[in-house]
Nucleic acid binder design. Structure first.
Lengths: 221, 221
DNA sequence: TCTTGTATGATACAATCGTTTCAAACAAAC
DNA sequence: GTTTGTTTGAAACGATTGTATCATACAAGA
């Protein structure tokens, strides 16, 4: 079906992501969805409820990420390093993706950097949960002596760098020539650089009895 | 003097930084400055000009940073590593500072993540210039064989991590216990961690003939 | 066919926005 | 003391915002 309500939801997400809640007008959404500008109040009660509904859909579409982080450790036969690479690559792909669902990342970043009181910390809590799962995932890697603050710093090093690439992508576009970007700044390149950097920087905190092969290739491009 | 115009400027910066241009009302600024809400149009013509003036003041107050990055290399007797540490610490201090001028960082981050068409890329260009100076600063460190993309990736690793700490400080507050933060997440700790991580991750790209002592301490907290 | 509940479109509303206008207050110059 | 130019305060403007109202259109069930 191509109901008015569906059209509003489909159209509102990207607009909210691009301009933020306050700078997005009800009329703009409705004209983009080709419905009367009173339709939002009819279907959602008010503008905030529409926003909440969109945020909720983002949160639910994030759970696969969380689950993969959580379920990653028990896999047998795959070294920790490989699993870490897969995990970071997965996130990098999500962040760098030029897909249709790009606006979800955009809206998330917006809420991370400038939280809206509307979605009562649900999205924020979801992000924090993701970081925490990552923390637990790295437990397998670090020696027991590795302090908590160091662990968090390594996590912020990896995920923070990733977020920075997306959040200020204009900076990368402005600084790095087009040809370089096409060849060396795709999701796979960034992901593998981050993992390499992490492994090199944290090798003193690394458990020796890590399973699987541990040959790091060094921070090659 | 305590003129109305001065009071507006002093008050407008923090408010713009906290709520953004669109979500800040002229009336809010004026009531905070205890002037009539028509005063902004009298002194600045319109709301945008006031914003431009504030952004311009931020840009000029940023130039010392740029200069220090530029002038850092030629100093004799101080090893590259020490100069890098000083540079990163300087930025970390600026980012983590709880001073009065905290709003400047906030407004900059806001423009980085969600650029306003108002200040015609002046602030953005200033940030990009800062990154470029950093790139040139690291020229002394890297071997000539180190590719451009790797150099940029290392820069984004360091500065991106730093930005992430500030841009989503609520995340750090939510994830890291208060006691840990007080003891291990001050500007000095973050800065030295970032430099340690960089040195460890980039040691294959390092010039051997670097001046001064090169003893890295490893990523200790 | 008539009725009932829902969907939609046009219009109106109150509130708030940035901006303008206008007059009073003021200080300095002659 | 009068004039002149600048600063301040009160009121109002038109535009835009989110929301409410109301009548119509439509589909399904009796």
């Amino acid at each position: 079906m191509d109901t008015a309500k569906q059209r509003i939801i489909e159209v509102a997400g990207p607009i909210f992501a691009q301009k933020g809640f306050n700078s997005t007008t009800v009329r703009e959404i409705c004209s983009a969805a080709k419905v009367n500008h009173a339709a939002i109040n009819y279907y959602f009660g008010n503008k905030e409820n529409l926003y909440k509904e969109i945020v909720a859909s983002i949160v639910t579409s994030m759970t696969p990420w969380n689950q993969e982080t959580e379920l990653s450790p028990p896999v047998e036969g795959i070294s920790f390093e490989e699993r870490l690479r897969a995990l970071i690559f997965q996130r990098a792909s999500g962040v760098f993706a030029c897909e249709l669902s790009q606006w979800k990342i955009q809206l998330m970043l917006r809420e991370i950097h400038d939280p809206t009181p509307i979605c009562g910390r649900r999205l924020l809590a979801s992000v924090a949960e993701d970081y925490q799962k990552f923390y637990r995932f790295l437990d397998e890697y670090f020696t027991p002596e590795t302090s908590d603050d160091l662990r968090w710093k390594f996590i912020f090093l990896m995920l923070g760098t990733l977020v920075h690439y997306k959040a200020s992508d204009w900076l990368v576009r402005e600084l790095v020539p087009e040809s370089l970007r096409q060849e060396h700044f795709q999701a796979e390149h960034i992901a593998s650089f981050i993992v390499d950097a992490f492994l090199a920087a944290s090798k003193d905190c690394r458990r020796t009895e890590t399973t699987g092969k541990t040959g790091t290739t060094g921070p090659g491009s």
